[in-house]
Amino acid sequence: MPRPFSPFRFAKRGLDYILSALYLVYFGLVLLVFHAIQVLTFWLGGRAWQQHAASAMNAGLVYGQWLTGTTSRFRFATTLPSDRPLIFVANHQSLFDIPPMGWWLRAYKPVFVAKKELEYGTPSVSYNLRKSGAALIDRQDARQSLGELGRLGGRLKTLDCSVIIFPEGTRSRDSMPRPFAGAGLAILLKKAPNSLIVPVAIDGTGRFNPEGLFPLRSFSRLSWTVLAPIDPAGLNAEQVAEQARQAIAATLERGGSQSGS
């Protein structure tokens, strides 16, 4: 049975289209401008300068969401150590999960595990993945994936970076995460066995773009909560992945990621 006509819903839908168009034009311009800036900074100062430019790009994407009336909150529910490698494990709802993590976790020099299809084709994003040393994995090529994750694990061991991985493998549109795969964690932990696994609960991004990039849902509330680390000692990778998933799911069920700032 169709829902009755609502002037409020009609007006809100129209506003979603207008504000989404405004933000997506801004979004595209940020990617284009910062692609040129990243190329220039890498040429002048190498990876370190380029990563500062990438962080500024992420900040621009995050705060630009104000154009849609949307706000983001990032909360640390724990204090993270600086003397152990960190693997941030997050649920995955949307491409909008990523810029806030790159911005608010910048002090930890985060490097992403991403699909190889992103290596080329997207201004700024593809360039940053290549120059940051991200693990760009081909899911159809196990040997290539093992090599990429092993290389990144070697960097992780030296505290040269932290790692951000989305172990669901695909996006979950609802609020509850899908099962987490432990294969990627297993390789990273083999290379850097003293790493801590840090769950990050992401809430609201799937509702922000429920129909793809257009239209977005204006006046959304998005949140990220960094949870207490998991020490993997005595656990296999599947157990670690499941502990991280349960911690994230419990946070989302409580609505805890919506509190704090």
Rank of each mutant, 00 (worst) to 15 (best):
L216V: 08
P229Y: 06
P215V: 04
A233R: 13
A247F: 01
A228M: 05
R245N: 00
R217Y: 10
L222M: 05
A228S: 11
A228G: 02
L213C: 06
P229G: 02
A241S: 04
A233C: 07
A244L: 01
R221E: 09
S220E: 05
L252V: 15
I248N: 06
G255W: 08
S223Q: 06
Q243K: 14
A241I: 00
A250F: 10
N236E: 13
F219A: 08
R221I: 01
G234A: 08
Q243M: 10
R217I: 14
T225F: 03
G234D: 12
S220P: 03
A244Y: 02
A244P: 07
F219T: 10
A250T: 12
E253I: 15
I230T: 03
L216H: 14
W224I: 02
S223F: 01
E238Y: 11
R254L: 15
A237H: 15
E242C: 00
L235K: 14
S223N: 04
A244E: 00
G256Y: 08
F214R: 11
R245T: 02
R217Q: 12
E211G: 05
L227Q: 01
L216M: 15
R254G: 12
A244G: 02
P232V: 08
S220Q: 03
L222P: 01
L213Q: 05
L227V: 01
D231R: 03
G234N: 06
A228K: 12
V226N: 01
N236G: 08
S218G: 13
R221P: 03
T251Y: 13
T225G: 01
S218L: 06
L222A: 03
R245D: 02
G256L: 15
L222C: 04
A244K: 00
S257Y: 08
V240R: 04
E211P: 00
R221M: 03
A228F: 01
L216N: 11
A228D: 13
F214P: 10
R254I: 08
G256H: 10
P229K: 04
S223K: 04
R221F: 07
L213T: 09
E211N: 12
L252T: 12
W224P: 00
I248E: 08
S218E: 11
G234F: 11
V226D: 03
L227I: 02
I230C: 01
R221C: 04
F214H: 10
N236T: 09
T251M: 11
L252S: 14
E253G: 08
L222E: 03
A247H: 07
N236C: 11
G234I: 06
Q239I: 06
E211F: 13
S220M: 04
R221T: 09
Q246W: 03
R245F: 01
D231P: 04
S220D: 05
E211M: 09
A228L: 05
A250R: 15
Q239G: 08
P229R: 05
R217L: 13
F219G: 06
Q243H: 00
P229Q: 01
L222Y: 06
Q239N: 11
Q243P: 00
T225S: 11
A233V: 11
V240D: 04
G234K: 08
Q243N: 03
A247M: 04
R254W: 09
Q243I: 00
Q243E: 02
E238S: 14
A241F: 01
A233K: 12
E253C: 11
N236D: 15
G212W: 11
G256F: 09
V240W: 11
T251K: 12
L252R: 13
P229C: 00
P229L: 02
